[in-house]
């Protein structure tokens, strides 16, 4: 199975449900190099079409999802989305000129916090990443990083002082990642922050951050702005990474111990043949085009 066919098996976010234009206006966008049109019919029903062919749709996590496959893999579960006392915050979309896999990998990285998210998610000289664990959950086929701890000056909009923040990361499908972190205002629950990535093509993506928080004080504008602020700080770093695609050859980018999650993510992608947006082998394939390996 080639990289594109593999990628076609998944669901992808293409719009925030609340901001899809009303009939007869439509929204045009791209997914996996294909033009698609999102339409809200007169009766309010939504549809997604490519070349006049309707694709399956799914309305979940405040976004409209679609898949080019007639039999896509089931969409991943976020149980916290059922907890109605959380505040659900779709943060809009940001276009980034990088591989969709680079966007996910960056989201999993904590070592960059003090340098990119200075005085918010990290600060100098608190740059050390303490040892943590990474596993592949075979039942769910997910990458899970646990026991991640990091000193953060302002971990969330609702945090007033620096705290040691606990993180758990989940990668439930190649282009989606979810993190659970200490809720600054409550001990018994965790805030949920996700990025849903829409692959425009192998070197461009639209990133849809989404949050499910316990925060009774911040306004919606403040919560959205906080997440956008964080993500825009990442954006200029992501756009300057070379190569644009994510290298899966361990010789190309030298990891450190702090990059355990990234290493696991890259291996997991390689093992399952999720190579859309990846650079598999530099010597065979210097330009990173037309990756093709057998899926497991």
């Amino acid at each position: 199975m080639n990289a594109l066919d593999h990628a076609k098996q998944y669901w992808y976010p293409v719009a925030i449900l609340d901001s899809i234009p009303t009939y007869p206006d439509v929204k045009n966008t791209r997914l996996l190099g294909m033009d698609i049109t999102i339409t809200r019919q007169k009766d309010g029903a939504l549809s997604v079409a490519h070349n006049e062919e309707n694709w399956l749709i799914n309305e979940v996590y405040d976004h409209l999802w679609t898949s080019p496959s007639k039999t896509p893999k089931p969409i991943f579960d976020v149980p916290e989305a059922q907890e109605r006392d959380r505040r659900f915050v779709p943060c809009g979309v940001v276009r980034v000129r990088c591989s969709p896999l680079r966007a996910v990998e960056n989201f999993l990285d904590i070592a960059h916090f003090p340098f990119v998210h200075t005085d918010i998610l990290g600060s100098e000289p608190h740059t050390e990443v303490a040892p943590y664990s990474v596993d592949i959950d075979d039942d769910k086929d997910e990458v899970i990083a646990t026991k991640v701890k990091f000193f953060q000056p302002q971990a969330a909009k609702s945090a007033s002082d620096g705290i040691i923040t606990d993180y758990v990361y989940r990668v439930p499908s190649p282009m989606n990642a979810i993190l659970y972190k200490t809720c600054p205002t409550r001990d018994d629950v965790q805030d949920v922050i996700a990025i849903f990535v829409q692959p425009i093509d192998e070197e461009t993506c639209d990133v849809w951050p989404w949050m499910a928080l316990y925060d009774d004080d911040s306004t919606m504008a403040e919560m959205i702005e906080f997440q956008q602020l964080i993500f825009l700080q990442d954006r200029s770093i992501l756009e300057n990474q070379v190569p644009t695609k994510l290298p899966l050859d361990p010789k190309m980018e030298i990891p450190t111990r702090a990059d355990l999650t990234s290493i696991a993510y890259r291996r997991w992608l390689k093992r399952r043949g999720a190579l859309y947006g990846a650079l598999l082998n530099t010597t065979d394939n210097p330009k990173g085009t037309s990756n093709s390996v057998a899926a497991e």
């Binding site: 925030i16 901001s19 779709p90 943060c91 809009g92 979309v93 306004t219 919606m220 504008a221 403040e222 959205i224 702005e225 956008q228």
Partner: peptide
Amino acid sequence: IAVEFYPGAE
């Protein structure tokens, strides 16, 4: 005072 310029066009 934070104003949601995007996506809300506040």
